[in-house]
Amino acid sequence: MEKTLTGKTYDIQGFSVQDGPGIRTTVFLKGCPLRCPWCHSPESQEFKTELNWMGVRCLGIDACGKCLDACPNGAVTPGPVSQNAAGEDIVCPAVDKSKCDECGACAAACRAGALYMCGTDRTVDEVMRRIERDRPFFEESGGGVTVSGGECLSQPEFTLELLRRCKAAGLHTAVDTTGFVPWEVVEKLLPYTDVFLYDLKNMDSALHRQVIGVPNEPILDNARKIAGAGGRLWVRIPVIPMFNESKAHFDTYGRFLSDIRDAVDIVQLLPYHTLGVSKHDRLLKNDTVFMAEPPSDALMQDRKAQLEGYGLKVRVH
C-alpha cells in the first residue's frame, strides 16, 4: 500500500503581507539545516514534533496538575513559583527534557494549552483546503501562497506537490528558502514557483559556517542558477549586529547581487529584532540565545542607499 504524502507543518498563517506580493497564506514547514543564533522561529529548526511550554497560560499545579500524572516517564514534576496572566502566584510544572520523549501525553492532559505540541503532519489535500478559504483575498490583492519554514525544501516531495497543486488551482506561488539544498531540488520547483524569497545571511563562507553551521557556497551557487534559469528572486538580508551590518560587508552583497541583478525584483532588508527570544524559552532547552541592540533606522537607511548604488531596488522592513 502506497504511503500518503504528508508534510510536517508548525503553522499555516492567513492574511500574511510580508511573504511575497499581495495578501498571502504562508505554510510553515518544520525542519532547517541552519542554526542561526538570532532565529525568530526556533520552533521551526527541528524536524520532529516537539513539546513546547507557554507559562502565561498555566493554571498551576494546585488548580490543575494533570500533566504530572499524565507523563509516563516522570519527566513532569512540580516546578518554580510563577505568576499567571492575572498576576497571581502559582506553582508551575517543570519538564526534565532528559526524560521527555515528546510523546505528547502531558500536552493532551493540559486543559489550558500551556503545554502543547509543535509540529503537525498534514496531507496536501488538508493544506489545500485551508488555502482555498483565503482565495478571495488572493484575488483582491494579487496575492497567493508562500511555502516557508524552517527550510521548506528540506521536505522536497511535499513542497513540490503542494506547489503543483497551487499552480493547477491558478494560485501565485512563492518559496521562502535559505537556498541550502541540492540544486536538483530547486530545479524541480522552477516550473511551479513564481518567486523565490531568498535569504542571504553572510557572504563570508568561513564566518557563515562558524556562526550558522553550514557554508554559503551552495546558497550562492543556487542563487546564480535560479537567475540563469529565468527564476525570479526577492532577496532577503537579515541585518544582524556584529555579523553582517558593516559597510564593507554590504559591498560584498552589492557586488554579488549586481551580477544577477536582472533576476532580482527587490532586496528586502530585515533588521534584527528580539521577538523570537520568548520562543526559545518555550522549547525548554535552556539554549544560549543571541541578544543585541537592533540596528538603528539611520544604519538601515545607509545600507539601503548603499545597495541602491549597485542598481538594486531595496526596501527596509
Score class of each variant (00 low, 15 high):
70 A>G: 12
143 G>R: 01
71 C>R: 04
198 Y>S: 07
138 F>C: 04
55 G>A: 11
78 P>W: 06
220 L>I: 11
149 G>V: 04
284 L>H: 11
143 G>T: 02
280 H>N: 13
23 I>N: 01
220 L>Y: 05
216 N>F: 02
52 N>P: 00
25 T>L: 07
237 I>M: 05
123 T>A: 03
246 S>R: 13
224 R>W: 06
105 A>M: 13
152 C>I: 04
211 V>P: 03
179 G>M: 11
29 L>C: 09
40 H>A: 15
228 G>C: 09
47 F>L: 11
73 N>G: 01
32 C>K: 09
167 K>L: 11
17 V>E: 01
255 R>C: 01
42 P>F: 11
272 Y>L: 14
267 V>S: 00
225 K>R: 15
41 S>L: 13
282 R>V: 03
162 L>H: 08
93 P>T: 05
245 E>W: 11
41 S>I: 14
239 V>Y: 05
161 E>L: 12
311 G>A: 12
132 E>A: 15
269 L>E: 02
276 G>F: 03
283 L>G: 03
137 F>R: 04
315 R>C: 00
256 F>A: 09
13 Q>L: 15
243 F>M: 11
32 C>A: 10
248 A>Y: 00
203 M>G: 01
89 D>Y: 13
313 K>V: 15
45 Q>C: 04
182 P>S: 12
63 A>P: 00
83 Q>P: 08
178 T>F: 02
203 M>S: 04
281 D>S: 12
97 K>D: 11
219 I>C: 08
103 C>K: 05
